[in-house]
Design a protein around this nucleic acid. Sequence first.
DNA 1: CCGCATTTGTCAGTCACTGGCGCTACGGGC
DNA 2: GCCCGTAGCGCCAGTGACTGACAAATGCGG
Lengths: 195, 195
Amino acid sequence: MTDKCGTLGSVPRSGADARRRLQQAALELYQERGFDRTTSAEIAARAGVNERTFFRHFPDKREVLFDGEADLRAALMQSVAEAPGELPALDALLHAFRRAAQILEDNRAFREPRLRIIAATPTLRERELAKAAMLTDALAEALRQRGVADRLAGLAAATGWATFHHAAQDWIDDPSRSLEKHLLQAFDDLRGLAS
Amino acid sequence: MTDKCGTLGSVPRSGADARRRLQQAALELYQERGFDRTTSAEIAARAGVNERTFFRHFPDKREVLFDGEADLRAALMQSVAEAPGELPALDALLHAFRRAAQILEDNRAFREPRLRIIAATPTLRERELAKAAMLTDALAEALRQRGVADRLAGLAAATGWATFHHAAQDWIDDPSRSLEKHLLQAFDDLRGLAS
DNA sequence: CCGCATTTGTCAGTCACTGGCGCTACGGGC
DNA sequence: GCCCGTAGCGCCAGTGACTGACAAATGCGG
């Protein structure tokens, strides 16, 4: 019934490949019709697989857009761990965020359509916030492993992430300056606020 | 077919009353069976109304638990506006949070079961994060109306809220000290981090 | 060539949520 | 007392996200 081999010929059905096609199809459809006007069946159809397969690769419709987040988290945690030994908490975070900024700037074109879709869809913003919360938890844990006092780690991670996020927002609104510039300014602003 | 007037007799069907019964029923069922093991039909049945009525009062299953949030937001914004004139941004926020802390401490028993349910349910945590994001946006706006620089308002609101939330978390873990104590300590910690 | 594991297709089912329609109870104007 | 507009509700039918179970296919080592 489905054009399993009809449209694309004998595609390498390696599993990871279907996953990529599903991500691509979802991204396209979310752009064309908007998130809530595209059904999971449509995504699966464009990817050339069954609807059920979609939910085997992703737990729900939203998660398709949040796939690289685990990598970002890992990179951030590693950067925090590798930060110069006696740097205080916020500086260690800034060190990690500068690395993350590099990554974000490199594949900006790649992430931009995704950001627009998320920004336009409340339910996707919710999911994004949840991912951010998981990320700050991970950052707090990384700070603790650095020796940051248990009580301070969570607070430092939360405020640090808020500052990073704020910088990223500024960068989106004004891409003429680099993310790193925005980041440094945001951390300066933070210290100014708390003085 | 339904026991519309059968079980409870001629209840005052004033609309706002059905809403309260729905909230109560949902809270009970979420406690008894957990959020995802209770259906909207069950909530409606216990409240003595039709399932459709549930969705007339609340846009979705989660929102039942987040009803007072608008009040909290209004109270916070008013407190920020009423804060002594030349207080810097973070201090104005602290002023508002101390008022909010009073409110939270007063109906702690009222909110505690709700917190447990939310903490135990990922999808409810997502919604809570979304509400918090709306709240920080409102705080940023309140700060701007106070004359806080446009660029700083968002950052101050985000870090301030993170600090408040952190204090509230500490308070839940250690209720022997007052929320206000935790709040003051958290803001001290924040200034310590940024020094 | 044969099991064996992984991936997928198919089907049936649950449940959140929506639109539409008709009923009914209530409050105000006459 | 009567009419009428409105608001809240019950009811029904429908869409769409997601799940569990089972069978078919695909590819790989023996």
